[in-house]
């Protein structure tokens, strides 16, 4: 299958390792990716918080570009981009007035029909296919993984329409399919504080601190995420949280595509494991993973 790849801003900067590992994992899964030429920012939270039309028209522009490519849809990895692209399709399909306004803004009509898929959706499809086990060349058994879904990947359900919004399982199933051990914990869909990191840092420290503490309490070796902002709050800010809350965390946070890449046999360097604030390599080695 071939997809128009929408990396989003984070994957070009703070989450380069998410992009690299996504491209490697996609190759192993037999997914052909072609980056959308001249894609623009999805608008993220600032756009839709300030202007409804802007919040829909920005992602619609990139979707319109993707429509001109001969693919099976758009592949997106950032949970926020995913949410905005899906919200644009949803609004244009269900609101005729918005569809018209978007057409005026873009100078061209977009029908809302380009399928938008998250990398996790495609991975979930892939693990159900025969022959998936043969791709696994590195054993991950013994590694306890807490799957963190965050807010936007599976919610709101009428827009994403993917997995159970309150008790999602797709990452957990992936962990099990890779031979690692999913842990049952309680913060899998709690908010990390998201963009409040820019305005009210204390809230993020508290919320992300609770998430990491619970992962630690349930004896998870690593947390996996599917969103660059979650990663930034949980990993990049972790030392700051430890200091602020006076606790010791030391919980490595990986992108799920990195875990996938590990199972497929890529090296730590190829997957960008060295780019994290909390180095995951020691705990991976401790669990007997050969890297």
């Amino acid at each position: 299958m071939k997809f128009a790849f929408y990396p989003g801003c984070s994957l070009e900067s703070s989450a380069k390792e998410y992009k690299e590992s996504t491209l490697l994992a996609a190759e192993s899964l037999g997914l052909e990716l072609e980056e959308i030429p001249d894609w623009i920012c999805c608008g993220s939270t600032p756009a839709h918080m300030s202007d409804e039309l802007l919040g829909i028209a920005l992602p619609a522009y990139s979707l319109l570009l993707a429509k001109q490519m001969d693919t099976d849809g758009v592949l997106v990895t950032c949970a926020s981009c995913y949410s905005r692209l899906k919200a644009a399709n949803h609004a244009i399909l269900n609101d005729g007035t918005m569809k018209k306004k978007v057409a005026e803004a873009l100078g061209e009509e977009y029908d809302g029909g380009v399928p938008v898929r998250h990398m996790l959706e495609l991975t979930s499809d892939a693990i159900a296919q025969p022959g998936f086990d043969e791709k696994i060349t590195r054993k991950l058994s013994g590694l306890k993984v807490a799957s963190y879904y965050g807010c936007l990947l599976v919610r709101p359900p009428e827009i994403t329409g993917f997995d159970d919004p309150e008790d999602p399982q797709s990452l957990d199933r992936l962990v099990a399919a890779l031979g690692a051990e999913p842990v049952d914990w309680r913060y899998k869909v709690e908010c990390c504080g998201a963009a409040l990191a820019f305005s009210q840092v204390d809230i993020v420290r508290k919320l992300s601190g609770e998430i990491l503490q619970d992962a630690k309490d349930t004896e998870a070796d690593v947390v996996i995420v599917a969103c660059p902002l979650c990663h930034s709050n949980l990993d990049l800010r972790q030392r700051n949280i430890e200091k602020y809350l006076g606790i010791d965390l030391e919980v490595p946070v990986l992108y799920f595509t990195q875990l996938l890449g590990l199972a497929f046999g890529y090296s730590a360097a190829e997957l960008g494991l060295g780019k994290h604030e909390i180095n995951p390599v020691p705990v991976l080695r401790k669990r007997g993973i050969n890297i």
Partner: peptide, 14 residues
């Protein structure tokens, strides 16, 4: 109620 979970043998209702 948003979540009911067990931690160290205790059930919490949030």
């Amino acid at each position: 109620v948003s979540r009911i979970f067990e931690k160290n043998g205790t059930v919490f209702v949030k």
